[in-house]
Design a binder for these strands. Sequence first.
DNA 1: CAACTATATTACTCTCTGGCTATTCACTCC
DNA 2: GGAGTGAATAGCCAGAGAGTAATATAGTTG
Lengths: 110, 110
Amino acid sequence: MANTSMSPALMELVAERFRVLGEPARLGILHALRHGELTVSDLVEQTGLGQANVSKHLQLLHATGFVSRRKDGLFVHYGLASKDVFRLCDIMCGRLESEAKARQRAIAPV
Amino acid sequence: MANTSMSPALMELVAERFRVLGEPARLGILHALRHGELTVSDLVEQTGLGQANVSKHLQLLHATGFVSRRKDGLFVHYGLASKDVFRLCDIMCGRLESEAKARQRAIAPV
DNA sequence: CAACTATATTACTCTCTGGCTATTCACTCC
DNA sequence: GGAGTGAATAGCCAGAGAGTAATATAGTTG
C-alpha cells in the first residue's frame, strides 16, 4: 500500500468507510454489538438513540459491510461482520495514548 | 478493547480521528506524503486542491497527530507522523477486497 | 524599508448528514 | 382479516464542514 498508487475512486471508497466509523453513534452501536447479536430494540435501549436513528445507522453499517443482518420473525438481529472494527479502533486508541503521553511529556518533561 | 467498555468521551475522540480520515482530500494528502516530507506548495501541486484548502486540511491532520510539521524559512515541510495510517488503510482495503469478492461470488457462484 | 513569496486565517456559500416525528411496511397472533 | 408490535422509510430542520476568494502573517531578499 505504502508504495502503490491509489486511484481517486479507491480513495473515495476508503474514505467512505472511514467516514462511517467517524460517528460516535455508530461506534456506540458497534461497541454494543461486541459480545454478540442484538435486535434493533436492544440497540435502541443500550445506546439511548431513537429507533429511526438506530435503524438508519444500521442500514449504513450494513451497506458498508460492518454488520451482519439476520431476520427472525418480527425481529432483526444485527451482529459484527468481522473483528476488523476492533483492530481499527485498537490502532486509533493506541494513537490517542501516544498523544496523551506526548502531551504529558510536554507539560512535565523529564 | 473488545472486552472493555468505552466512555462516550473516548468514543467521541476515536470517532473524531476516523472522521479525519473519512475525507478523500485528506487521504490524498497523506498518500502524497507516503515517500517523505513535502511543502504545502508541493501538496497543492500534487493533489490539485486549492492552497487555502490544503492548509486547512493540514492544520487538522496536524492537530490530530497524523502529520508532523517542520518549519524551514519560508517553507513548511509536512510529513507522516507514523505508519499507522497505512495499517489503517490496509485493513480498509482488505475489507473492500473481501466485499468485492463476495459480490463476485453472489453474481457468479461456483 | 519595500517588494516578494509561502503559508495561515477569515468570511462566506453550499452541500451533506444526524436526529426528530410521523408514517409505512412486515410479521405474528387472536 | 384486524389488532398489535418491531423495523424501515420519508420529510423536515439545524449544525457541521469542505471549498473558495480575499486578506493577514511570517519570512526572505534586494
